[in-house]
Amino acid sequence: MDKIPILRMGSFLLVTIQVDLYDRLALNLEADLVQMVQKTNARGVLIDISAVSIVDSFMGRIIGNIASMSKILDAETVVVGMQPAVAITLIELGLPLKGVHTALNMEKGMDLLKSMIDTPEEEANDQPLDDFVAE
């Protein structure tokens, strides 16, 4: 059984989908990811779909679900690297992926996530620095 790896990076979860998704795989990813958000207290989820050539209405719905589920667990989802042809078919299908944040690439997605979430670690790190500057 294939499994899509979920990597943890600080308070973010990173998912790179390198295979063409089929239904079972997508459903497993949805379940695993939501579990991981809870287990790791993740504040953000970054999904890279640059290697995915087909997103149909089912996959689109799963992506939307992941975003909404993460949202109510207090984590933001950003989908990055969508191929232009996939964007065209999604809109023509009638699936505008409302409520899912997107970014052109990994780097921009990371910046977007960071801007949406002020991570506690950063705040903690910032604190002494501010004090130091104040002195």
């Binding site: 050539s53 087909i54 149909d56 042809a85």
Partner: peptide, 11 residues
Amino acid sequence: VNQTRIITAAS
């Protein structure tokens, strides 16, 4: 783009 359309439709 058309390839993607027909494969998505098939899917």
